[in-house]
């Protein structure tokens, strides 16, 4: 009778433990009342070869976990920021189309430069630099003069046309988010 009871308790214990092993592997810590606390899980595993074996098998399965493409987050954030202005930005920027992940359906990159703030910034620098040369920058001009003229002209551009490089959208955005957006640039 006692053996029967013991066996039944152990079976229930194993089932509950096995139900919770995936949470351990995915780094989710139990918080609900119905969940098995970490300490109880460890105590059971120390005593139960079958559940330890199950954990090893689940670890093997976990190693096959697929990851999303590296640029997925950057593209989503760029699209979302492009269509949902921050508090400081004006409304109404058109939403770019989906940038498909299938290479054969990919839009030409040149047509989308403006949708990517970092790429747009690079184009802006290039355009302003070319403008300086066209407006009288001379070979003899010193670096300080050129830089001062560049700063003045680029400030004017940012102020006049918020769309250029999406400047207002990036106000107050952290370095991490900017890095995420830059990560979305195709090499």
């Amino acid at each position: 009778m006692n053996h029967e009871r013991e066996g039944r308790d152990k079976a229930i214990g194993c089932e509950r433990v096995r139900e919770h092993l995936p949470l351990r592997l995915s780094g989710v810590h139990p918080s609900g009342a119905s969940e098995v606390p970490d300490a109880d899980l460890d105590a059971h595993l120390a005593d139960c070869a079958e559940c330890t074996d199950e954990l090893a098998f689940l670890e093997l399965l976990s190693a096959s976990r697929p990851s999303p493409p590296a640029h997925l987050a950057a593209r989503v954030v760029a699209r979302a920021l492009g269509s949902r202005p921050l508090a400081s930005g004006p409304a109404g920027v058109d939403d770019p189309d989906v940038v498909p992940f299938r290479a054969s359906r990919r839009a030409p990159q040149w047509s989308r430069w403006w949708a990517n703030p970092a790429a747009a910034a690079a184009v802006l620098v290039l355009a302003v630099g070319m403008g300086l040369v066209a407006r009288g920058g001379t070979p003899g001009q010193d670096g300080g003069t050129v830089l001062a003229a560049f700063d003045a002209q680029s400030a004017e551009l940012w102020a006049e046309d918020w769309l250029v490089a999406g400047a207002p959208y990036l106000d107050g955005v952290s370095d991490e988010t900017l890095a995420l957006l830059v990560a979305g640039i195709d090499p």
Binding site: L72, A73, V77, P85, L86, E176
Partner: peptide
């Protein structure tokens, strides 16, 4: 409109 919060949501659930 917090861009960092939006980016974190995307990172967390993608």
């Amino acid at each position: 409109g917090d861009a960092d919060a939006l980016a974190e949501l995307v990172q967390r659930h993608q």
